[in-house]
Structure formats: C-alpha cells, structure tokens
C-alpha cells in the first residue's frame, strides 16, 4: 500500500492487474494506472461500449480492482449522473464516479447525455479518452478524428474535416473544471485528477491517447507519439477553472511557436497520415496556430 507522500510509480502499482485484454502498447491501462494512483479502489468507472469495455475482460472477471459499470453506448454521462446522485443521497463521499468513454462515445453519440449531465452539474469526473476514431469496431472516423487522417471510412484522401474540440464545448457549459491531458504525461494527468477530485460538480478531462493499431504505428511508440503531439503543439495541455485558462507545464515551452517541433515529425510516425499532401499539412498547421491563438486569448 501507499501513502499520499509516496512517489507516483508506487501508487500506480495496485489497481490495474496484469494480463488484461488490451492490445500491446495500448494507452488505456496506462491511464487507468494513474486513476488507480489517485482514487485507489474507491472509484466507480462507468464505461460505455468501446475498447475499454473489452480491455477489462469478460464476465465473471475484471482486470481492475475497482467497480466497473458497463453501459449502453450513448449513456455514460446519464448513468454516472444517477450513480453520483445515489451516492450523495446515501451520504457516501469517499467514492468517486468516473465516466470513462471514448471519443465516439463522447464527441458523437454521447454528446447529448454529456451536455445534459454537465448542465445539471452532477458530481462526476468525465474522462474522454481520445484515440481519434471508433477503434473497437475497426477504425471508423469519429468527429474527433483529425484532418487528413486515414480511417476505414475515410480511405482514399483521409478525413476532410477538422477535429471537434470537445474541451471547448465543455468550457462553454460553464462547468467547474475542464482540462486536457495526455497519456504521455502521467504526472500532469495525476495532478489534474487530484484537482478534479477536490472540486464538487461536473469535471471534464479530454485525454489524448494514441492507439498503435488504429494510427498505424509500432506499439513501442505509443508514448513517443503522445509526447510529439504536445511538442509539435498539435495537442495543448491546459486547465480551465475559475473563469481562467492555465496552460500546463508540459505545454508551456511551446507557447512560443519557434520552440515547437515541426508537425511533420508527429505525422510521419503514423501510417494513418502516410498519404497526406503538403497542402494538407499546411492546413493542419493553420488549425494548430488558430488553436494556440484561442488558448492564449483565454489565458
């Protein structure tokens, strides 16, 4: 067991058990290790249909030492709301309700129930783990798939629309806490979860999670790809609370655009961008600059 003071690696040891059903190099259990470090066994994960529902393994067993509630695709936020209210009525305050849904389950089909739960400000932490497509059903595009990316439903020229910015939508809901995070920075994610844990009401975390199978890269590069997204400025880490946006430590050096790595470094590691044209790379660059402009405006 660990104390609050022991370093992160020790706290990550207990909750996630070896031998789950995740593909080699999958980012999902890495994030769960951080969740385990923050909440221990005292969390109720509400998981809609997605890769994660498979990763924990088939009934009657589970790969994590925490409660998991498997729910229908669109309903993670609604079910989590109900559980949070039930805990509140019973006076249980040391158990945390975490809705854990994919980008499809959040940015597409779960958007209505997410928006409703946020507006009602239920006491839950909603984590959208974003592997930028419907991976569990075979790499179909979602609204969170980036511009230019190959998926099985954008096969020839790649996706022709930009990524939906869900964190921005959640900021517009006026909820107490919104953050972006990345699987490449577990200490940053840990600090964000700790802050979310201390706040009552609806908390939203958008977690960037590179998928070796769907993005077409060698599983050894999961963390490298995640870090490159931040180092190229394609993914910006921040927290938004008390009406102010705060750029997080790992992203701070890249406020200055000259210090960012060329986005080609991020794209070239991934097979899903193999056929991307220079014009499209330029279009992504514009999108990145626009994102930074917006983030700086709020901070």
């Amino acid at each position: 067991m660990y104390s609050r003071k022991s370093p992160l690696p020790y706290k990550m040891r207990d909750v996630v058990l070896p031998g789950d059903a995740a593909c080699p190099g999958c980012p999902i259990p890495i994030a769960w290790k951080v969740l385990g470090a923050v909440f221990g066994e005292k969390m109720i994960l509400v998981i809609p249909a997605c890769c994660s529902s498979v990763v924990v393994g088939p009934y009657p067993y589970s790969s994590i030492k925490a409660s998991v509630v498997h729910v229908a695709f669109a309903s993670a936020a609604a079910v989590a709301s109900g559980i949070a209210e039930a805990l509140e009525r019973r006076g249980i305050t040391d158990v945390y309700v975490v809705a854990w849904a994919g980008d499809g389950g959040t940015a597409d089909i779960g958007m209505a129930s997410l928006s409703g739960a946020a507006e009602r400000n239920h006491n839950i932490i909603y984590i959208m783990y974003d592997n930028e497509a419907y991976m569990n059903t075979g790499i179909q595009r979602s609204s969170a798939t980036p511009y230019g990316a190959w998926t099985t439903t954008t096969p020839i020229i790649g996706k022709t629309e930009h990524k939906k910015d869900v964190a921005k939508i959640m900021i517009a809901h006026g909820i107490p806490y919104v953050a972006t995070a990345s699987i490449g920075y577990p200490h940053d994610l840990y600090a964000k979860l700790e802050r979310a844990k201390s706040i009552h009401g609806f908390k939203f975390i958008h977690l960037h999670a590179p998928c070796p199978v769907g993005w077409r890269f060698d599983p050894r590069y999961t963390i490298k790809v995640a870090k490159l997204a931040v180092e190229t400025g394609m993914w910006i880490l921040y927290e938004y609370y008390d009406g102010k946006l705060r750029i997080s430590g790992p992203s701070k050096p890249f406020i200055d655009s000259k210090r960012r790595k060329p986005i080609e470094e991020y794209l070239k590691l991934q097979g899903r961008f193999r056929k991307i044209t220079p014009e499209k790379v330029e279009e992504i660059r514009k999108y990145v600059d626009e994102n930074w402009r917006w983030v700086k405006l709020l901070s």
């Binding site: 031998g19 789950d20 924990v56 393994g57 088939p58 067993y61 790969s63």
Partner: peptide, 8 residues
C-alpha cells in the same frame, strides 16, 4: 465481476 490477474 471479480478482479483477477490474467483475464485474457
């Protein structure tokens, strides 16, 4: 479901 090492 019960937690178990090696669900897969």
């Amino acid at each position: 479901a019960k937690p178990k090492i090696g669900v897969a």
